[in-house]
Design a protein around this nucleic acid. Structure first.
Lengths: 340, 340
DNA sequence: TATAATAGTTTAAACGTTTAAACATAATTT
DNA sequence: AAATTATGTTTAAACGTTTAAACTATTATA
């Protein structure tokens, strides 16, 4: 049972025959310009030799700052979450903070536990990719006066900081692009949900169709999340049956898109000549499918960065008017088919 | 600029007209059976009303325990990492600890930064899914006497705690199964790497073939990670060209498997009758491919659980002889084709 | 020569908890 | 009635750090 002695300021002070305070000043670079270079160097050398690491408990207790930000994800196993987590972690570190990551796995009680945990850990702010039914908890956070920025999803009824993809623009752009490319009968497969961002995607689709003068009637299917496999398949074949000559389908999530691809491959649809498939979100695996697919790429990088900036702004200046921004992503066209 | 006053023990004590110590005893349930129920209830009620949350800085400083475990992943964006993170987070919470997650993104300097950060945060132990060239840092951790368990990958040259998939068994099992099913000419596509676990997979393949009396000569390709796309494709077609009648290919990672599927679909191979494809790791998307595929499923759940158990054991009893275990996963056979 | 400014360092209190030990009172035993 | 035990609560020190303020010694200024 080896007893590991963690080096503390006192150890360094003794070794250097100076006071603890001086060591602290040196190691924090807070020397008001008065510390002798010689002493400073000696102290730094000893700190290094003894492998000193600040005790953040003591530091945090004394300074009342944790330098810590919490990130709560709807579901870590979702590639979207994982990607955004990575982006945010980098950005947060760059700004001198530490990121705590928690995944609520679409489970509200876990969400509450995470919030409590993070509060106990004295996080200075929270970044949240909220899940569907978490509005009450979000309001709670607001009430407690904790700095917080919502990511990707938000509640228009709440006056809250958020950064999200411009979902209206996304589907609007997709449709317009299809139409430019001569598509006439466009289907849309989306998810049945209360999420505001899905409504926006729907609205973008509808408006674009209306503006372009193409029909929307009976061209949209909202599928239920449970038993997605079968529901999507059914939705697609219904859509195709009831709209002969349909020459394009837009899917509103990456999972839906993948199912669309599956359907196309299984049924030997000629993509994109007979029917074009357009998806949402970049998925590492799109290019593995033997079918060219264009997709709307959410601006994850920018969303992550902006969210961190907003949060830090809020931390530095709590209670400011809400910072809200939607960011436009871009359409990534399939590699021209024929070239393999 | 709303000033948010965080409730502390003192506030509760004043409100209840008792000492801070008593409040602490009550809230920690550490009442040696002596505290009047009435008082305890009153205190608890006030704590709840004032929304008290322990200040873990103060608590950690005083108790010298952080109740915190750090998880360092090779790459959070890899589905394997994300899945294992989820499993571990649950398990760790269940055992009363808090999990800090960090992703090193295959970047050694980031790895070192994460270790430092976690040490400063006073983690009681580290769980690490190490990346290829991190052996020096791992030894460092060992030298510092920090409790640590390696996950999934380990260094046989180091005497260290680890929990991993039984990689030898995995490929051995796959091959044997193929042979039972009448396959005669089996190819193996794996990654060119120094990772010990890939060597094990290779060894399992070789041994199984040898034992079953089938040839290994020229049936294995180790592809370079860079430009995986093209390399895999080339490897497969080489393999098929040079081994006419090859009736099965085993892939040693999920990415490789996906590329294998892509190849099969593009080239209209008849899977599994003409050629069987067997993969590694569960991937959410396998079943989307219009091709039946069997795969070896790593026992992620058990690996995660065991790793947490080992780490806590090590924390409770540091310096004990190393705990090491490989766990056998299972082969998941493709849904019988024909049934759609 | 006295005074003030400068440079370099130390003192001491504070952050919010925990916890062994002490204390006070009431109940029980001798 | 004194001594003991049980019950309920408080005291006070400690954890490792930061930081305003104080101190000391030296140098510059009046």
């Amino acid at each position: 049972m080896k007893k590991l002695h963690k080096t503390k300021l006192k150890d360094i002070a003794q070794e250097a025959k100076v006071s603890v305070a001086l060591v602290s000043y040196v190691l924090n670079g807070r020397h008001s310009g008065r510390i002798k270079k010689e002493t400073a160097d000696k102290i730094k050398a000893i700190a290094k030799r003894l492998d000193y690491h600040t005790n953040s408990f003591a530091k945090g207790l004394r300074t009342q700052k944790s330098n810590t930000i919490g990130l709560i994800l709807a579901d870590l196993a979702n590639p979207f979450s994982a990607q955004i987590a990575r982006i945010i972690e980098d950005k947060v570190m760059e700004r001198g903070y530490i990121l705590l990551i928690g995944s609520m796995d679409e489970d509200i009680s876990k969400f509450r536990r995470l919030i409590d945990t993070f509060i106990k850990q004295q996080v200075e702010g929270l970044l949240i990719v909220p899940s569907e039914n978490s509005i009450k908890e979000i309001e709670d956070i607001q009430r407690k006066g904790i700095s917080c920025v919502l990511i990707d999803r938000y509640f228009p009824s709440l006056s809250f900081n958020y950064v999200a993809n411009d979902n209206y623009f996304s589907t609007y752009t997709c449709v317009m692009n299809m139409i430019e490319n001569g598509k006439k009968t466009i289907g849309f497969i989306t998810q049945k949900t209360d999420y505001f961002h899905f409504h926006e995607r729907r609205r973008g689709f509808d408006d674009a169709c209306r503006e372009a003068g193409v029909d929307v009637e009976n061209r949209v299917r909202e599928v239920d999340k449970s038993d997605l496999n079968n529901n999507v398949e059914r939705a697609i074949s219904e859509l195709l049956d009831e709209n002969p000559g349909m020459d394009a389908i837009l899917f509103s999530t990456n999972m839906l898109t993948l199912h669309g691809l599956k359907y196309a491959i299984r049924n030997n649809l000629n993509v994109p000549d007979q029917i074009e498939i357009m998806g949402f979100d970049e998925v590492q695996y799109y290019d593995i499918f033997p079918v060219p697919i264009s997709y709307f790429k959410q601006p994850l990088e920018q969303i992550g960065h902006k969210a961190v900036e907003y949060l830090i702004a809020e931390i530095d200046n709590p209670g400011q008017p809400p910072l809200q921004q939607v960011i436009k992503g871009e359409l990534v066209m399939a590699a021209q088919s024929g070239v393999e």
